[in-house]
Structure formats: C-alpha cells, structure tokens
Amino acid sequence: MKIMCLNGWGGKLHDPLIPYVQTASPDILCLQEVVHSPATGKDWLTYRDGDHMLPQRANFFRDVAEALPEHVALFCPAAQGVLWDENESVPSQWGLATFVRKSLPIIAQAQGFVHKSFSPYGYGDHPRSRSAHAIRVYDYARDRSVSIAHMHGLRDLNGKMDTSERLAQARRLAELATSVATPEDPLVVCGDFNVEPDSETFTIFAAIGLTDLVTTRGFEGTRTSHYRKPGRFADYMLVNDAVEVLGFTVVAEPEVSDHCPLILEI
C-alpha cells in the first residue's frame, strides 16, 4: 500500500502537480490546503489577505478527484470565505481532502477539528480553524485493516513554537486517530503540522505509540525552493510498531507545491 501526504498549496502549481499525482498513483492521498468553489466554473481565483495575494485553483478538489478516477474523494472543509475573480467575490471552501482507492473499503472514519470549529462566514482571524480526518480501510492484499489520519496544523503568525493551542491540536488528532483505529491496527498519522522537529507534539504522539519517519531517517526538511522563509520542516509522517515500512521518502523533485510530498510504502 502506498500512502502519500501533501500540502497542495491551493493548487498553485497545478500543471506539474496533477500529472505527478496521476503517475505516483498512491492508494491513499492525504491532501491539505484544498480549495472547493462549486459556485464557479472558473479555473483560477485569487486569495487576498491584506497585502498577501495568492493564485488558487478554484476547484482544486475537483481537479484531483478527476485525476484519480479510481479513488473515493472525501472533502473536509475548515471554513468558507471568499476568493476573487478580479473584483467579483466568489464563495469558496477551504480544508483538506482524502482520496482512497476504491478497492480499499472504508470501514470507519471520523472527521473533526483540531483547532476552533467550522467558520461559515469567512476564513477568520489567524490562527484559523483547522480540520482533521481519520479513516480505517480494509487491505485485502494483506488481509487486515489499516488506519490513517491527517491534519493541517494551525498557522501562528508569531512562528512555529509550541503553544497551548498547538499541543491541544496534537491531542485532538491523537484522539481522532485512536477513535477509528483498533489497538492492533497499523496506524499512520501525517500532515502539515506547522511545528518544528523538537515540538512537544511528538511527545503526545509517542504516548500512543507513534514515531516520526521524517526526522528519524535523516531528512533535512520538507519544503521546496518555492518556500523562501527560514525553517525547512513542516510536514511529518508517523507510524506505530504494527506498520511494516517497506519504503519512505520525502520527494524533492518534481516540485509540485511549496511542500514536498511524503510517500510511505507499507
């Protein structure tokens, strides 16, 4: 089974991202920063936050779902705000998505929030609402169930240091993951956590038997050349002892986001 985790950056690098996802063909794709704008047929809209402007793929969720037709597509919104088509505002949902190969039955799942709750009338002030999703699938090839959970950790304008909110989000994700998984399940927890490698977040996950693969296997970061700020870590993938790791990598090329894809084969 191949599991990919990626912060898709709102589909900004749509042209390389879509063929890459198709070629990589993960059995399970955990995708963060997903845009869903069903009210428009436009391909591109603009996100505005003060002086910050970012092109967004208007229907990024649809684009990835169409690129993976053999997968069940599940969207988990954190907020609905507006993107812009020049001077026209367009309602747009933002959150994360999980894509599961149809041959892997989803036998349990849980969706919830690790920070705040759903924001229906605007993206809100930073740090904004953050959602998480956990699934349990049945793997017929190995005759067993496997559980996977992912989140997009909150962004704090002051940096990636530990805060009470970040520790609370880790506890909530741990609770969500263990609410779906049985004690015997191979369990994978991943996402853009928005914390540094020395964060107490990993102590919380260690308490439920999880070990991070990014930091323990010598990778020097998870950001691409499109990320020009200091600090090269954001994304992590953790496993418990029941996971037999056949391969794990942080993909440097091609660059499909300002984050690197994480790929785990079990």
Results as ranks from 00 to 15, higher is better:
168 A>W: 00
198 D>V: 07
186 P>G: 11
192 D>N: 08
121 Y>H: 11
142 R>L: 12
129 S>T: 14
200 E>V: 02
177 A>W: 00
177 A>Y: 01
182 T>S: 13
155 R>V: 10
184 E>K: 13
160 K>R: 13
122 G>T: 05
135 I>M: 12
168 A>T: 06
197 P>C: 14
178 T>F: 02
183 P>H: 08
177 A>K: 04
171 R>D: 13
181 A>S: 14
168 A>K: 03
126 H>Q: 05
136 R>P: 01
201 T>M: 13
148 I>N: 05
179 S>K: 07
191 G>F: 03
128 R>N: 05
152 H>S: 05
136 R>I: 00
146 V>G: 09
200 E>A: 14
191 G>E: 04
145 S>E: 15
170 A>D: 10
154 L>E: 02
153 G>T: 03
124 G>D: 09
146 V>T: 10
189 V>Q: 09
127 P>S: 05
137 V>Q: 07
145 S>Y: 11
135 I>L: 14
121 Y>G: 00
192 D>T: 04
201 T>D: 07
126 H>L: 08
124 G>H: 03
123 Y>N: 01
179 S>E: 10
189 V>R: 04
134 A>T: 08
116 K>P: 04
178 T>S: 09
181 A>V: 09
148 I>P: 06
127 P>L: 00
141 A>K: 15
181 A>C: 07
185 D>P: 07
131 S>I: 00
167 L>A: 11
162 D>Y: 07
123 Y>S: 00
201 T>K: 01
195 V>I: 11
125 D>M: 06
184 E>F: 12
158 N>A: 15
